[in-house]
């Protein structure tokens, strides 16, 4: 019961990201499409790294760091959301050290390759989630959707995304209400008894369908024909192109050269 309340609370707080998106900073002013593309290139480069790579990944942290600073975002809400996802990431990677026990020596420390892949997954996922959150916090759901439409993503998918975002809190409330009503009339049960699972889920589905239909009617009544307009100027400007291109070049350089190694080698050369 309590966990359900916490869960809906978390979802309720999703609005915080959208509130942040209404700030007015150099990053917020960049065209949504430019930010979507940059994030996309970033993620591509991120996942293209070898699974035993750690040091080469590290410079990629500059992107979220700089966006974070220039967009003047508060650390708390973003960090909280990253932490929220970490347990899942650890859950995915934690078995690697057990499966891959081949030993490698790094800087005099003996480590199983499993641990290296684990850290690699941990860093990659953390950075990917951060990049996604920053995109959200500097763009906002509506503009994000418009940018996706500019990328010719089918409008059905984009609408699906938008409406899910808008109505997930209502669905959660509905779930919470239903479960509350159940537990009030079944005070001795812990959780929902499996005999009621089917009808509970069925009820929710029917109610969701009903609501979906009413929402669709409301949209049609206000002239909705399937296309989604945000009223934003659709054109990217030169600074938007520069934003995408310079970040992309930076990412590619990171991918091609192991920057920490290069700097290390340079320093060693100087010392010698």
């Amino acid at each position: 019961m309590n966990s359900m309340a916490n869960f809906s609370n978390t979802l309720y707080n999703m609005g915080v990201m959208n509130d942040l998106a209404r700030k007015d900073t150099p990053i917020h002013r960049i065209h949504p499409l430019a930010k979507v593309l940059t994030t996309f290139v970033y993620l591509l480069i991120l996942v293209s790294f070898d699974r035993y790579e750690i040091s080469g990944l590290l410079p990629l942290i500059f992107y979220p760091l700089l966006v974070f600073l220039f967009a003047e975002l508060p650390a708390g809400p973003i960090l909280k959301r990253i932490l929220f996802v970490e347990p899942f990431i650890i859950g995915i990677g934690i078995l690697n050290p057990f499966f891959d026990q081949e030993i490698v020596i790094i800087g005099g420390i003996a480590l199983s390759r499993g641990w290296i892949t684990f850290f690699s997954i941990f860093i990659k996922s953390g950075l990917a989630v951060t990049a996604g959150l920053l995109l959200m916090a500097t763009t906002g759901m509506d503009k994000l959707a418009a940018a996706l439409r500019l990328l010719k993503i089918p409008r059905l998918f984009v609408l699906q995304l938008l409406l899910t975002y808008r109505y997930i809190s209502l669905l959660m409330e509905e779930v919470a209400r239903t479960i509350r009503a159940y537990s009030l009339r079944a005070p001795t049960h812990k959780g929902v008894h499996r005999s009621a699972w089917g009808s509970l889920a069925g009820q929710l589905l029917l109610r969701t369908l009903d609501r979906a239909q009413r929402i669709y009617q409301a949209m049609c009544l206000r002239g909705f024909t399937g296309e989604y307009h945000t009223g934003e100027d659709a054109h990217m400007q030169w600074r938007d192109f520069i934003y995408v291109i310079s970040w992309s070049i930076f990412f590619v350089i990171i991918r091609l050269y192991n920057i920490p190694m290069v700097i290390g080698a340079l320093l060693m050369g100087v010392i010698r």
């Binding site: 509506d142 808008r166 609501r211 296309e227 307009h229 009223g231």
Partner: peptide, 23 residues
């Protein structure tokens, strides 16, 4: 509509009120 939640589907009030005219 009877239930305003059925009618307010955008992320801000401004965008919601603008939904009809923009369409």
């Amino acid at each position: 509509f009877q239930d305003p939640d059925d009618q307010l589907f955008m992320t801000t009030i401004y965008d919601d009120v603008a939904f009809g005219p923009r369409n």
